[in-house]
């Protein structure tokens, strides 16, 4: 019962910080609130005993990707550039559309939601079991993902390189 209370409080804080991501005006505040949201989601992973995914989420998402966003924000030097005023009819329509999306998802799943499907204790999220699975059954996708990474790296360098470089 205490675990249920913890998960409900953690879920409320997750939703609150996710709302602050889209409500705060300054982009750096949005990045920091998104980092907080990822830490809360990692807390949910630990509650479900998925330790490997929790650590990967913190290291890769909150540690690498969000720092990359923060560095790009600092490089762009957007302090002088004020964000244009949001068009109020468009944001009203967007909120209506998002609420309709949530309503459709929950209405499609409403027969399955009975609050009786409890998650029992499982050991599949430990590093040993996931490592065995990753290097036996999913070893080919794991190797293909390295090709994806090197193509993304080459593409990023190629796109962000300055043009009109003359080599003397």
């Amino acid at each position: 019962m205490i675990l249920e209370l913890i998960s409900i409080i953690l879920g409320g804080m997750t939703i609150g910080s996710a709302l602050m991501v889209i409500l705060s005006k300054h982009p750096i505040r949005s990045v920091l609130y998104l980092v907080i949201t990822f830490f809360f989601i990692s807390g949910h992973f630990i509650l479900m005993n998925a330790q490997f995914i929790a650590v990967v989420n913190i290291i890769v998402y909150a540690g690498a990707i969000m720092v990359l966003f923060l560095f790009v924000l600092m490089l762009l030097n957007l302090n002088k550039v004020d964000e244009r005023k949001t068009n109020h009819p468009i944001s009203f329509t967007a909120v209506i559309a998002g609420g309709a999306l949530l309503l459709v998802i929950l209405a499609a799943l409403k027969d399955g939601i009975t609050f009786t499907n409890t998650i029992v204790k499982s050991d599949v999220g430990l590093v040993e079991n996931l490592g065995t699975l990753l290097f036996s059954k999913y070893v080919v996708p794991f190797e293909v993902s390295s090709i994806l990474f090197i193509s993304a790296m080459v593409g990023a360098v190629l796109l962000a390189k300055r043009e009109k470089q003359h080599i003397d």
């Binding site: 675990l3 009786t116 499907n117």
Partner: peptide, 9 residues
């Protein structure tokens, strides 16, 4: 224990 967590939540 992870009793009390439901997948519906």
């Amino acid at each position: 224990i992870t009793q009390g967590l439901t997948v519906d939540y």
